[in-house]
Simulated assay, not measured.
Amino acid sequence: MVTDAAMPYDDLTDTEFEGFCFELMQELGFVNVDWRKGTGLNASPADNGRDIVAEWHVTDVDGSVHVERWFVDCKKYTKGVPPEKISGLLAWATAERANVALVIASSFLSNPCKEFIKTYELNNRPPFRVKHWERPQLGKLLEGRDAFVARYVDSRPRTEAEIVAAEEARNDKLWYYRKEVLINRIETGRREPLEPGIDQMMRDAMTQTEKQYADDPNFIIAADNREGWNLAYLLGELSALRWVLGDDWNNGDS
């Protein structure tokens, strides 16, 4: 299920969000979907008030099929979409006799925008329906479409915050493992005991780390793999993440 905190388009640019909406329309079953982006620029007048034109086939109870023409305007906003940003869509839907004028908003339409739509429909009686898909509706539409969502979540570049978090988790795991090795060597007589105060600080830190990663079943390296593949894999991951963050290769410090 797609949650509000995990929408796959949050990190996309305006143009990338239009591409997401274009593919979503196809995923939902629209046909003859045309993305009218005339240039690669983030802001372009080439769409003439509608970013996407698509057709929806409606089957009547008697089996006959008629085609609805949808004009779609895609709005990548972190705040509410203002009313002036949808006027072009309504004008072109009127001029070219669309059946539906749809606004797809990554967040929400502002309250003035929703009032503008109501007033427009009341005063103009347009021959088309005005619809809007906001964040909650998009979440519903994406439910059960895991493969489609994964194309955007799994293929997008990781943010620096995500990379730093992954590096920190692996650093903590390696630190914890090395403290376990130290304790084992002390208990088996291969190393002198630590001073009581330092030993207690280390064990308290280990307990805190265990609580921090209590929900991670793979945090503790399995005892039979501590000198083998699991440890080598962990060191490789840590080194690669640190290299991406600007460090030298093969830094396995913890």
Rank of each mutant, 00 (worst) to 15 (best):
M1Q: 12
D4K: 09
A5Y: 05
M7E: 08
M7W: 02
Y9Q: 08
D10P: 00
D10V: 07
D10I: 02
E16N: 01
E16K: 07
F17W: 00
F17D: 02
E18T: 05
G19Q: 03
G19F: 01
F20Y: 04
F22G: 00
L24A: 01
G29Y: 03
G29Q: 04
V33N: 03
V33G: 03
R36F: 01
T39Y: 11
T39A: 09
L41M: 07
N42S: 14
N42G: 15
P45Y: 02
A46W: 08
D47H: 11
N48T: 02
G49H: 09
R50T: 02
D51I: 04
V53K: 08
A54V: 05
E55H: 15
H57E: 14
V58K: 13
V61R: 11
V61Y: 11
V61I: 11
G63S: 08
H66R: 14
R69A: 01
W70V: 09
W70E: 05
F71G: 07
D73T: 05
C74Y: 01
Y77W: 13
V81C: 02
P82H: 00
E84A: 03
E84S: 06
I86D: 00
I86M: 11
A91F: 08
W92S: 15
W92Y: 15
E96F: 14
V100P: 07
A101H: 06
L102A: 05
L102S: 05
V103N: 02
A105M: 04
A105V: 12
F108M: 10
F108Q: 09
L109G: 07
S110Y: 06
N111W: 06
K114M: 03
E115P: 00
F116E: 04
E121W: 00
L122K: 13
L122Y: 03
N124H: 07
N124V: 00
P127R: 14
K131Y: 10
R135Y: 00
P136G: 05
P136F: 12
R145V: 07
R145Y: 10
D146T: 05
F148G: 09
V149F: 07
A150S: 11
Y152R: 03
V153C: 05
D154I: 01
S155H: 09
P157G: 13
P157R: 13
R158N: 11
R158S: 12
T159A: 11
E160G: 05
A161R: 10
E162Y: 07
A165M: 08
A165D: 11
E167N: 11
E168W: 02
A169G: 01
A169V: 10
A169Q: 15
R170E: 15
N171C: 13
N171D: 12
D172W: 11
K173M: 15
Y176N: 06
Y176S: 03
Y177C: 09
Y177G: 03
K179N: 13
V181D: 15
L182T: 14
I183M: 12
N184L: 12
I186H: 09
I186C: 06
R190G: 06
R191W: 04
R191P: 02
E192L: 08
P193C: 09
P196R: 09
P196L: 08
P196A: 10
M202C: 00
T207C: 04
Q208V: 07
T209F: 01
K211S: 06
Q212S: 08
Q212N: 08
N218T: 12
N218E: 11
N225K: 13
R226G: 15
A232P: 04
A232G: 12
Y233H: 13
L235V: 09
R242E: 07
G246S: 10
N250M: 04
N251E: 10
N251C: 07
G252W: 04
G252R: 04
